[in-house]
Each structure stands twice: as C-alpha cells, then as structure tokens.
Amino acid sequence: MTGRIEHHPILGSLENRKQILFHFDGKTYTACESETIAAALLANGVRTLRVHEEKGTPRGIYCNIGHCFECRVTVNGVKGIRACLTLVEEGMNVESGVQLPVPFKEGGHQK
C-alpha cells in the first residue's frame, strides 16, 4: 500500500495543500499542489510509469532525483520528461511510454 505520510514524529503533520486534478493514461487522479508527477502517482498507488521501449517490460522511478531517466513520461505532448522532477499542474495530461517497433533488429519486436 502506498499513500501519504500525514503525520511524522519529527517532521510534523502535513499542512493542508490545495488538491488538483490531472490525467495519466486517460484516467483522472487527484494530486496535491506543488508535488511531482512521480509522487502524485505513487500516492495514488501507480508504480508503473512506462514500459521499456524495446522489451515492453514495466518501469517506475529509480533515483527519484533526476539522475537515471527511468521515470520518463510524455507531458502535454512533450516526450522524455522526468516525472520525478516535474510538478503536476491542474489538468496536466501525462502519458506513459509505449513499446516501440524495432524493425531492423533481428528478433526484435515488430508492430
């Protein structure tokens, strides 16, 4: 189970943040204002952000601080955006990556 850490013995309780709506692969989710796409999706129980372009295996965040590019998604039509560094916005349209054809690779996936 994922979800938010409302209370913390040292860091205190979360303040009430404005709720916003955004879309991921056609579904609508609630996020808190000024949180990253990766955090908002995980809080909603979504771990898979894309599939590997060639193999189609599922991928999620790894480093969570912008170094590994494992979390790349398409945001409002722009590809290759790091979900762990990008803040969600009201009405934002986020799409996971899809498997791509590799017609020139022997044994590769063909569409």
Partner: peptide, 18 residues
Amino acid sequence: PGVMSIGGAQVMTNVHRV
C-alpha cells in the same frame, strides 16, 4: 516498478511524504 535507490526512497518519504 517498486525497486528504487535508497536515496530515492528517502526523498519520497521525507520530502514528498509519500
């Protein structure tokens, strides 16, 4: 999905509080 670096977990927990 669900495998992350230890620092990634730190940021998710203490910074994003997820």
